[in-house]
Design a protein around this nucleic acid. Structure first.
Lengths: 145, 145
DNA sequence: CTTAATTAAGAATAAATAGTCTTAAATATG
DNA sequence: CATATTTAAGACTATTTATTCTTAATTAAG
């Protein structure tokens, strides 16, 4: 199941890198993230611009510039990131693509799919970047390969 | 969340039409399905060829030919259709796209995502086309708009 | 002030997906 | 056998998504 586009996958991975390995300086360069994760520098830059516009990151140009979280990692929830990367209507789509599917005109799998989306949405709303960063640092999980 | 490609969405809708409104004759023509659902005839034809190869449909050429279920609708599970349309690895994908993500090398959201996929897989395995066809026929739900 | 380091912006290209079209093959019917 | 109806096959085109490239703007440091 391809739940995220490449933008979503790379964006989330790059963001988690920042959260898991916060820089000593105020800003972490995009180059370091993209090199370390083996992602295209330009592509990550483009994705991060969107996250900056959405208020998830801040950026600073020039030497020793880079990007940083706009808020404490405890206050950034996975759902904010996913909506920023995939669109605010991420949890509103009908499984079989009917444009007017909803509680008034449900498709054959509407109720079931609604339930799946609600649970996902709930889980993503409860998960902070801080939690995921901690998970990565304590070596329980990994961000590459 | 775009869980299905256009092939998956259209294929499932077209198949559900067949199940919900079984023809009096042995075969239902693709033209009738595509016209009724407002889908491209050629596109549905292409999708149905794959479902025929995968043993979900049978087809018959010539006048009063068309397609039909290869098995009773009770024996065709949603999971078979989705795997035929989206690929057998549909439930094996890492959320953030790490190629080696698994229980040995889990990504930061592996456990959570695994659980979501398992539940989905389970639900799709229990849902037959017959059930969905009945749902559509009894007007609880709809297949167009 | 010059240079190097960095992100911003968006144009350009490539690849994947979606959709259309043409021709062939099969088959029923007159 | 001729014709009409239908799916099969795959080439072709269009659109969307992904990726790369180029240039500009900002800023630190010598």
């Amino acid at each position: 199941m391809k739940a995220l586009s490449q933008v979503g996958k790379y964006g989330l991975r790059a963001l988690l890198y920042l959260v898991a390995y916060p820089p000593e300086n105020q800003y972490l360069s995009i180059r370091q993230i993209s090199d370390d994760l083996g992602l295209s520098f330009h592509f990550v830059t483009k994705i991060f611009r969107e996250l900056t516009e959405r208020g998830i990151l801040t950026s600073y140009r020039g030497p020793s510039g880079g990007i940083a979280l706009a808020k404490p990692a405890e206050e950034i929830m996975l759902i904010d990131v996913i909506k920023a990367l995939e669109g605010d209507d991420y949890f509103d789509k009908c499984l079989i693509g009917l444009p007017h599917c909803g509680s008034a005109k449900p498709c054959p799998v509407h109720d079931f799919w609604k339930e799946v989306k609600t649970k996902l949405q709930h889980n993503f709303s409860e998960t902070s970047l801080a939690l995921l960063g901690e998970k990565i640092r304590t070596q329980e999980v990994r961000l590459d390969e």
